[in-house]
Lab assay of single mutants.
Amino acid sequence: MEVRTIKVFTTVDNINLHTQVVDMSMTYGQQFGPTYLDGADVTKIKPHNSHEGKTFYVLPNDDTLRVEAFEYYHTTDPSFLGRYMSALNHTKKWKYPQVNGLTSIKWADNNCYLATALLTLQQIELKFNPPALQDAYYRARAGEAANFCALILAYCNKTVGELGDVRETMSYLFQHANLDSCKRVLNVVCKTCGQQQTTLKGVEAVMYMGTLSYEQFKKGVQIPCTCGKQATKYLVQQESPFVMMSAPPAQYELKHGTFTCASEYTGNYQCGHYKHITSKETLYCIDGALLTKSSEYKGPITDVFYKENSYTTTIK
């Protein structure tokens, strides 16, 4: 009895394709271990004539594949690729409408935090270190965002349907971005203890939790000093293409032309909904596939993004 075979390709990165001759009487799992086709788990399936010449994702289970996976995804987590594939199996079914010149995501599976993050990423200057993220990001900007969303979920250790947080998501993504040249110098002034300067680099240099107003941050924000008295913390120097200011959701007025974009969060910790506000020729609110415009805006804002380049204080 002759062994019926077909020729397929296996890959971990969709760049390096490895030619395989597979036995049609055995499952993919018996031949390769966990195997995925377009995100779908085909591990328990036997090869079919229609699979001839198709590319299958496999887990990096030998040295060659491990090197290829690390170079593309910059992670050695053995569960990463499987999590990416199972997320992709959902995100490829989502709709990605162009809204006001940006790629958004039609609401499904509690994905409003991903839509808000995706919209924000198209408006701030950011370059990702893992080629996987950078490639998928370019495709997302062009309207094909399924891979990018699935990668975000995998890097953030999230599953489809789980509630997510924009600030946490951005923080994970910033860790995989090139923020080497970003720098922030802060000064804390206390009447009792004097003053202390701190220099922050990388992710810490672009994120701040405690106030939404970048102007206020430049002037000074009140913080408790270690001595128990009130101290003032203010920005001395900022070198970065953008800054992200966050605070627990509270009524906040966004003035046209003073910011790049913002995240609105309605609801409580267990259950809520994100919308995205962007400042173009007027203010726009993007909620999944829905767009509304207004000249002014007041609502429960939790993150505001500002364009920056270089700032030095005039406070002496």
Rank of each mutant, 00 (worst) to 15 (best):
E2V: 09
V3A: 13
T10Q: 13
V12D: 07
V12K: 08
D13K: 05
D13N: 09
I15E: 08
N16E: 07
T19A: 11
T19P: 13
V22C: 10
D23I: 15
M24H: 08
M24T: 14
Y28I: 06
G33Q: 04
G33Y: 05
D41V: 08
K44I: 15
G53A: 13
T64V: 14
Y73A: 04
G82K: 15
N89C: 11
H90F: 10
T91A: 06
W94F: 03
Y96Q: 02
Q98R: 10
N100S: 13
N100F: 07
G101R: 05
K106E: 11
A108D: 09
N110G: 01
C112K: 05
L114Y: 01
T116C: 13
A117I: 06
L119P: 05
L119R: 01
L119Y: 01
L121F: 08
E125D: 13
K127T: 13
A132F: 04
R139L: 11
R141S: 10
G143L: 03
E144P: 01
A146H: 07
A146Q: 08
N147A: 11
A150Q: 05
I152N: 00
Y155F: 05
C156I: 10
L163A: 13
D165A: 06
T169E: 01
F174E: 00
A177E: 04
A177R: 03
D180T: 10
R184W: 06
T192N: 13
T199E: 15
V203Y: 15
A205Q: 00
G210A: 01
L212H: 06
L212G: 03
S213E: 06
F217C: 06
K218Q: 06
V221P: 02
Q222A: 08
P224A: 15
T226H: 14
G228S: 03
G228K: 03
A231V: 03
V236Y: 08
Q237W: 07
Q237P: 00
P241W: 00
P241N: 07
V243Q: 04
V243I: 10
M245E: 00
S246W: 01
A247T: 06
G257C: 06
T258R: 09
T260Q: 07
C261W: 01
C261Y: 01
A262H: 00
S263I: 12
G267F: 07
G272T: 02
H273S: 01
K280W: 08
T282R: 10
D287C: 00
A289F: 06
K298D: 11
G299D: 05
P300N: 13
I301S: 00
T302Q: 00
V304D: 04
F305H: 02
I315H: 15
K316L: 15
